[in-house]
């Protein structure tokens, strides 16, 4: 596991998302001040979940065919997706946001 610095909290306002060019790519979301990291590639196809829409109920909607995933657990909540997204741990230290990424990646 590697602790990867992403950006400052000011760089990622609520409702915002950012794609990390890790392998696999990770999408980092800010939902009302809480940070969640999920696999960026939608399990239904080729969409980047960082382009998705963060809902008030702590889910993210895929921008391509609108499947919803839980930000906390990665669970696929609505069709057409049926496979969950991987989740990654996040950490805020001061105003710095970190994501723990599997080792072997940058």
């Amino acid at each position: 596991m590697k602790k990867l610095y992403v950006c400052t909290t000011a760089d990622l306002p609520p409702g915002g998302a950012r794609r990390l060019d890790t392998s696999p790519a990770i999408a980092l979301f800010n939902h009302n001040g809480d940070y969640y990291a999920l696999a960026d590639l939608c399990t239904h196809g080729s969409a980047s979940m960082s382009e998705g829409y963060i809902e008030d109920d702590c889910t993210v909607e895929c921008p391509v065919h609108t499947a919803h995933f839980c930000l906390k657990t990665g669970k696929a909540l609505t069709q057409p997706a049926t496979v969950d997204l991987a989740t990654f741990e996040t950490l805020v230290e001061g105003d710095a946001i970190y994501v723990f990424v599997p080792t072997g990646d940058r």
Partner: peptide, 8 residues
């Protein structure tokens, strides 16, 4: 290629 805007 801009599905995020479809929601609002």
């Amino acid at each position: 290629d801009n599905g995020r805007e479809m929601r609002p």
